[in-house]
Amino acid sequence: MSLYAAYGSNMDPTQMLRRCPSSSHAGTCWIQGWRLTFGAGELG
């Protein structure tokens, strides 16, 4: 089994149904020991 964690527009059930029609929504949760970060890239 594979799990997919979504954020942003990927949390929209209608959009995800179009993108991944054979997948099912399992629910929402916190994933202990993980965090989502976005890098600013190189400045300069």
Rank of each mutant, 00 (worst) to 15 (best):
S2T: 04
S2K: 06
S2F: 11
S2P: 13
S2N: 03
L3A: 04
L3D: 02
Y4L: 13
Y4T: 13
Y4I: 09
A5F: 01
A5G: 05
A6K: 08
A6G: 12
Y7R: 15
Y7L: 04
Y7V: 05
G8C: 08
G8R: 12
G8Q: 08
G8K: 02
G8L: 10
S9N: 01
N10W: 08
N10E: 13
N10L: 10
M11W: 04
M11L: 09
M11C: 14
M11G: 04
M11R: 08
D12I: 04
D12Y: 07
D12Q: 11
D12N: 14
D12M: 00
P13Q: 01
T14C: 00
T14F: 02
Q15G: 05
Q15K: 11
Q15H: 09
M16A: 07
M16I: 05
L17E: 03
L17D: 07
R18L: 14
R18K: 12
R19F: 08
R19T: 08
R19G: 12
C20S: 09
P21E: 06
S22H: 13
S22E: 11
S22G: 04
S23P: 00
S23A: 03
S23W: 01
S23I: 01
S24D: 04
S24C: 03
S24V: 09
S24E: 06
H25L: 07
H25A: 03
H25F: 08
A26M: 12
A26D: 01
A26S: 05
A26V: 10
A26G: 09
G27R: 00
G27S: 08
G27P: 07
T28K: 08
T28Y: 00
T28Q: 06
T28G: 01
C29N: 11
C29Y: 03
W30F: 01
W30R: 07
W30A: 03
I31L: 07
I31F: 09
I31G: 02
Q32H: 10
G33Q: 04
G33E: 04
G33K: 00
G33S: 06
W34G: 06
W34H: 04
W34P: 03
R35S: 06
R35E: 13
R35W: 13
R35K: 14
R35D: 12
L36A: 11
T37G: 11
T37E: 15
T37W: 13
T37D: 14
F38G: 15
F38D: 14
F38E: 15
F38M: 15
F38S: 15
F38R: 15
G39M: 14
G39Y: 10
G39F: 14
A40Q: 12
A40C: 15
A40Y: 15
G41T: 02
G41F: 12
G41S: 08
E42I: 10
E42Y: 09
L43R: 00
L43V: 15
G44E: 02
G44S: 04
